Amino acid sequence: MGKILVIGAGGQLGQCLKTVASRRGITEIVFPAEAEANILNPELLAVLFEREKPAYVINCAAYTAVDKAEEEKDLAKAVNETGAQYLAEVCKAHGAGLIHISTDFVFEGDVVKLLSENDVAKPINVYGATKLDGEKAIISILEQHFIIRTSWLYSEYANNFVKTMLKLGADRDELNIIADQVGTPTYAIDLANVIFDIIAAESKAYGVYHYSNEGVTSWFDFAKAIFEISETKVRVNPIPGSAYPTKAIRPPFSVMDKTKIKTTFNLSIPYWRDSLVKCLDQLKNH
């Protein structure tokens, strides 16, 4: 397998990779602090790669504040595009494979159909556009890449929709949740496992892949499931996205087709609700 280097180790997915690595007994893995692994500093990256000599790099570093990105365009572009480019260049120089995390937000999501890797990406917000530009930069520089587009990431770590709902549900009697944005939640622990499966396969089937949990839901139904499973008593009302305007427009339908990743790596993917039960169990036990 060779040594694995995780960039963006402090974020949600980075913490999940740490947990899964210890569960799977993966010891040849490094989680450097941001000060040592700043993707906007190519000189620093070169020093890090020289020292660690990774065979694989997992890039979890990203600018993910979707609404804020509309105002902080330059910062979003720097992290999501320029940072990805620098990382691809240093991977190429050191012969390392790159696993890069992207998003369902590269799609417009205006048609109700499963989105495949071959569908035309047409982002409708700054975040999606910068993530797509990051993908393109990697593809143009580095052959040994696996770009994984994922959606609605949550876990027991960091800030995410599940933890926000639990907090709000404990404080309020009633919540209004958007019901006309449809996609698939993804438990970041499941994604972390898949990333290690891809590395373990030592495959050369490089390219773009889609990964989320199985199934389809809206934010409204996702919230209802969170409260139901956690036995939180709160009334949830469905509202249209137009009733809760945000700076960034979201794709209305972004359910991804996962056939390619399943067949290439022989994966069976958990249903979103089953994974949600696992996450809520973890949160209860912490």
Rank of each mutant, 00 (worst) to 15 (best):
A158G: 05
G14R: 03
Q15C: 10
V106N: 04
T103V: 10
L280W: 04
G207T: 02
N80W: 07
A188Q: 04
S230E: 01
I226C: 14
P54F: 14
S218C: 02
N59H: 14
I178S: 10
A188K: 10
D133P: 01
A21T: 07
N193D: 10
I4Y: 06
A188E: 04
I29L: 06
Q15W: 09
G109P: 00
P251V: 12
T259M: 14
A188G: 11
H100K: 14
E36Q: 12
E135C: 01
E72M: 01
M165G: 06
T259K: 07
G97E: 05
S116P: 08
I147L: 04
T259P: 10
V182G: 02
Y206P: 02
E70M: 06
T184Y: 10
Q282I: 15
Q282L: 15
L280R: 11
T263N: 13
L175H: 08
T246W: 00
L114N: 06
G241N: 13
F49G: 07
G134M: 10
D133I: 09
L175M: 15
Q181C: 11
V6P: 02
I261Q: 00
I178V: 15
P123G: 05
F196P: 03
E174L: 15
D67M: 03
L75P: 01
N176W: 05
G134W: 09
G169V: 13
T217Q: 03
A158F: 13
F196V: 01
V79M: 05
N160Y: 08
S155D: 07
Y211Q: 00
E34C: 13
S102C: 05
E135W: 03
I269Y: 11
I195G: 09
F253K: 13
I58S: 08
N237R: 05
V236G: 08
D74T: 04
R235L: 15
T82K: 15
A37P: 01
E71G: 05
V216C: 11
S242E: 07
K92H: 12
E50Y: 12
K68G: 10
D173W: 11
C16W: 07
E50G: 14
R273M: 08
N80M: 09
L13F: 12
T103K: 12
A248E: 02
K3V: 03
E135T: 00
T264Y: 09
P245A: 00
E228R: 12
I141H: 11
V162M: 07
I177H: 06
S140F: 12
L168C: 14
I139E: 04
E71K: 04
K260V: 15
P270M: 06
T164Q: 09
R149N: 02
S218D: 06
T19C: 10
G25F: 00
K53I: 13
W272C: 05
W219Y: 15
N176P: 07
S203N: 04
I226G: 10
I7T: 11
D173Y: 13
I101H: 09
Q181M: 11
